[in-house]
Design a protein around this nucleic acid. Sequence first.
DNA 1: TAGATGACTCACA
DNA 2: ATGTGAGCCATCT
Length: 101
Amino acid sequence: MTPFQKKALHILLTVPKGKVITYGGIAERMGNKKLSRAVGNVLHNNPDGESYPCYKVVDAQGRLSHSYAFGGKEEQKRRLEADGVIVNNYQVDLSEFGYLF
DNA sequence: TAGATGACTCACA
DNA sequence: ATGTGAGCCATCT
């Protein structure tokens, strides 16, 4: 586990229940918004959805990940709704559920 | 060591 | 609204 991953995952854990965060958001919190790609890599590299709420991570438009490792969008959607996040057609309202630091 | 890849984002046509 | 290209970074080949 690299320092980068550790940092990204830590930030992920700070997202409160019922909220979601964007790749860019995490990247920004790490210093540079342009790190969004690297953030994606970290999540992709994290197959353990039980330990980290990677389902809370959506893209800049609130769209769910198209390559969610578990059950695809369906599973991610399920988890988000179970968390209290309203998901419309695999998309969430960031102005409502997006977590800003 | 250099080049390619990606769960991204933004700008522009 | 859709498509293309560029930028930036950590990993993987």
